[in-house]
Design a protein around this nucleic acid. Sequence first.
DNA 1: CAGAAGATCTGC
DNA 2: CAGATCTTCTGC
Length: 189
Amino acid sequence: MARDLLGCYLVRRRGRGDVGGRISGGRIVEVEAYGGPGDPGSHADRAPNGRASIMFGEPGIAYVYFTYGMHHCMNAVCDRVGQGSAVLIRALEPVWGARAMRLGAPTNLADHLVASGPGRLCRALRIDKRLNGSDLVNGTVRILPPDTTERGEIHDGIRIGLTSDDERPWRFWLDSPSVSRSPRPRSRR
DNA sequence: CAGAAGATCTGC
DNA sequence: CAGATCTTCTGC
């Protein structure tokens, strides 16, 4: 499912809504898969309570959480009810609304990096906890299918930023300048 | 109920 | 490399 999301589009409808409304967003070029119980890196590793309960619910729903006191991250719930699995959307290649997505970003940040990384992506699309539980098929923020089956090569590697040592290669990305940076050297602790 | 850690990003 | 900054979870 994570692989299938590469090449799809993530867009936000803005302005007054319906016809003629503007959108911002872009092409999904980097994702990470998170499993249910048994995946130590996942919020859903524990019982289906608390914030991660969304992950155990209906697929196609957004799981948005706040972290490090600074950033939001957005996932798409991707498995059947009860499984507790989601895909973190980590980076977009900007396609629509470049100016809108720049608002609030550092002025010296290159255009192709405004949605590069899960925190930047949420800032660019103004995604916060109000969108937690929202519908990614018909909601304000939604995922659209790719316009071609040709996505190019899909790369994979270990997930970024986890504090648990976990080697499963569940980070996936396409060749794009908007893919977020390589993993930091694991800090010695 | 207090304390710590966290699926991050930025600027020094 | 440390600081920002707050929600969630854990342990007592």
